[in-house]
């Protein structure tokens, strides 16, 4: 039996976690922001993304590391992100909650 998740995910945080997972190994601030734009249609302000990532890291849902300095970034490093185990758990729990609440509403929501 799984324990209840300790952390509650905001909608924005939820989307970011999914975007990081989508990007896989190559997840960094640029690709996450692009994924949010292309896949979720959300154009996210840069500062908002950064502060949200900081918040997720403090909660232990993602971890980050700095890459090597790159010429195409003016000699600056990329910050790469990966979702931690508790991050994945939080996403699962959020999905379970959504699925539980949505059950039986297919007719109302017009889903196939």
């Amino acid at each position: 039996m799984q324990s209840m998740p300790q952390v509650y995910l905001g909608e924005f945080e939820h989307l970011i976690l999914l975007a990081v997972l989508q990007c896989g190994d190559s997840a960094d601030t640029v690709s996450v922001r692009q994924t949010l734009a292309t896949r979720a249609g959300r154009r996210v302000a840069r500062g908002a993304l950064f502060t949200a990532l900081d918040r997720l890291e403090t909660k232990g849902l993602v971890r980050s590391r700095l890459g090597p300095p790159l010429d195409e970034r003016g000699g600056r490093a990329r910050r790469h992100y990966a979702v931690t185990a508790s991050g994945r758990q939080a996403v699962r729990a959020a999905h379970a909650a959504v699925a539980g609440l949505a059950r039986g509403l297919d007719a109302v929501l017009g889903r196939p």
């Binding site: 601030t29 840069r46 950064f50 003016g74 600056r76």
Partner: peptide, 9 residues
């Protein structure tokens, strides 16, 4: 640095 690097890229 990350922000400036993103913008540069």
């Amino acid at each position: 640095d990350v922000s400036a690097g993103d913008l540069h890229e």
